[in-house]
């Protein structure tokens, strides 16, 4: 059997592509421009693909993800949380969880990473035009919402009322502070923050997301709700939305599954016939209910 491990230089040497566009396993090399320590556990990386032509032609839709890699450590999936309307850099926000995420937290501007993107499906932002949008984000779940929210703010006239409910465990666990400050100040959207444990001087809400949501009671008329967060939060938030008479088709969320290839081949991310990496990560609650119960 061919020893595929030793670097090859024999007569049959073949080069399989130069980047993601001609070899879906081959990342584009990118450079970290900036890093932001969002919370003790979340760090944001802003990166640009080194090949200017590739960066120039890079297109994606809000909700699509990338495989970010640190060579020698590995690859992990993160949503591109900058919007397609702002292409100075691609932004990823990374919660420290294991091997790759811990290593990514150690990066500084100038360091090299690999990017395979865009992957997966996206929020149907075109179908959402003209509708009221309710965003509900918990913890790192704010990342996928951010890209869609910013896209909509950049195309503000196309959408109706925008409501954001963002929750975290404590105030220090809230990411995207600058954005949040701006959103709080905007009159064309309604922003509510909540934390599980509120200190004395916390000017916002305290309490679990589903409770606060019931309190806010957004209308279901001509609306869609977009939720992201830990599974337990999703579960109870969906229950709250059902009480507010949102139909299953009006609720969007994203799924998480251990991923490797990101292109529907390696076989691990399926739920029944759906491969989260290519058929997801975005699903309506109606679609989720049709999937086998394996979350």
């Amino acid at each position: 059997m061919p020893d595929a491990i030793t670097p090859q230089a024999g007569v049959h040497a073949t080069t399989l592509g130069t980047g993601f566009t001609d070899n879906p396993y081959l990342p584009d090399v990118a450079t970290v421009l900036e890093t932001v320590q969002e919370t003790p556990a979340i760090k944001t990386l802003r990166v640009r693909i080194d090949d200017p032509a590739r960066m120039e032609s890079f297109r994606f839709n809000p909700g699509q993800v990338g495989q970010l890699s640190l060579f020698g450590v590995g690859e992990s999936t993160f949503v591109i949380n900058s919007p397609p309307t702002r292409m100075d850099y691609l932004q990823f926000s990374i919660m420290r969880a294991g091997e790759v995420t811990a290593a990514l937290h150690g990066l500084k501007p100038g360091d090299k990473v690999g990017v395979r993107a865009p992957l997966g499906n996206w929020f149907p932002y075109e179908d959402m035009r003209g509708k009221d949008i309710v965003f509900v984000g918990g913890g790192i779940g704010m990342a996928p919402l951010r890209t869609l929210l910013l896209y909509m703010l950049d195309n503000r006239a196309d959408y109706g009322n925008i409501t954001l409910l963002y929750g975290a465990r404590t105030p220090t666990d809230m990411a995207f502070r600058d954005d949040v400050q701006e959103w709080l100040g905007r009159s064309d959207m309604q922003t509510t923050l909540t934390v599980d444990q509120a200190p004395e001087d916390w000017p916002h809400r305290a309490g679990l997301i589903p409770h606060v949501l019931l309190d806010l009671a957004p209308s279901n008329a001509n609306s869609v709700a977009v939720l992201c967060g830990p599974p337990i939060m999703i579960k109870f938030t969906v229950e709250a939305l059902k009480k507010l008479h949102f139909a299953d088709e009006q609720i969007y969320t994203t799924l998480e599954r251990r991923m490797k290839c990101g292109i529907g081949i390696c076989g691990r991310c399926n739920i029944g016939t759906k491969y989260v990496c290519v058929d997801g990560p975005v699903f309506t609650y109606a679609e989720l209910k049709d999937l086998p119960n394996e979350l």
Binding site: P2, P7, Q8, H12, T15
Partner: peptide, 16 residues
């Protein structure tokens, strides 16, 4: 000298 660049080599041996 504080910085490094990365080069990727996707050469494989494909024997008939």
């Amino acid at each position: 000298p504080g910085r490094t660049t990365v080069r990727l080599d996707s050469t494989v041996d494909i024997e008939p």
